[in-house]
Write a protein that binds this DNA or RNA. Structure first.
Lengths: 163, 163
DNA sequence: TGAATACCTTACGTTTACGTTAGTTATCGA
DNA sequence: TCGATAACTAACGTAAACGTAAGGTATTCA
């Protein structure tokens, strides 16, 4: 029987999604036609699984809708096709050039968006780190205080009493 | 009349959201009680606007739900209150310590998540950059070819003809 | 002061990205 | 070969995060 590819279950396992998600992505045309067995069951080869993985990554990391993801992957597919058929003639020169011209600003915008995102994430991260440090400091103080309490019997913070 | 704060419209303008969003965030308890004029209109002071801005940032950058955002900002608020009242007695030592103990792993997890996110974003970005470079290369080639075409009258790529 | 605006609450509507049946057919392992 | 799984399609359901419309008050500004 050879190795027809991965089964739905295997792909779900590997990507951490449900079958419904795979069906849905196919439904909205995110991955093109998924090959079937003669019985009608889907099977996925490595490139297809990679494509699905890529889609999930784009969605999660860029925080964009599946329609936007679709636009990106379709653009990339078209560019790949252009590269593959560069010295042949499946598209006219003007179409080719128009597509290339259109693609550049899209990628530039994406890259800018990612840069800005990373920068903001960085500052946010630093804020959290500061807070983590401060929280730990407080914790150590509380710990010390607690030990002191145990030693002396009923110590409190500084000079204050408690309810 | 003094300066009661920003109006709804001003905040929406500044944060790039609609009034419905502000209402919704208040509705789900993300920002606490929003102060009102005696007529019942909301007004927002600077800290409140900052809080809203922070909420939006968390949501967008971390890609988490508003409920998760709520958990984070509430945790931070509690920690702030602890810092403020550290030498007073609004909470018991054990409560204080429990909160601090609970907070640390949460922040650690958040920071880890952000680090992993930034790393993945970085590799993704590099991929896009490569593609951008390749696309530009193709474009220059096409340009050169086009110029050549104009010069010679009807040149094609390499030795191929066209439909 | 009065007419534009702006804002309020209430409540139902909408979109995205799947979840969840139900009834049916394939595929696989003993 | 046959029974346990696994997959299929079709269709309705759902949670989150708002959108939108209606009917009524506040505020502002000429």
């Amino acid at each position: 029987m050879g190795k027809p590819g991965y089964t739905v279950e295997e792909v779900c396992e590997r990507l951490g999604v449900t079958a419904r998600t795979l069906h849905y992505y196919e439904e909205i045309g995110l991955v093109g036609e998924v090959p079937r067995t003669e019985g009608g069951h889907r099977y996925f080869d490595e490139p297809l699984v990679n494509r699905l993985e890529y889609v999930l990554k784009l969605k999660e990391l860029l925080g964009i809708s599946l329609q936007e993801v679709k636009a990106v992957v379709e653009l990339e597919s078209r560019l790949d096709r252009i590269r593959e058929t560069y010295r042949q003639d499946t598209v006219s020169d003007t179409d080719r050039k128009r597509l290339l011209d259109d693609a550049v600003p899209i990628f530039e915008e994406l890259i800018q968006k990612m840069d800005s995102r990373m920068a903001k994430l960085q500052t946010l991260r630093e804020g959290f780190e500061q807070r983590l440090i401060r929280t730990n400091t407080l914790r150590w103080d509380a710990e010390k205080n607690e030990q002191h309490e145990t030693e002396t019997g009923s110590g409190q913070h500084g000079t204050n009493g408690k309810s």
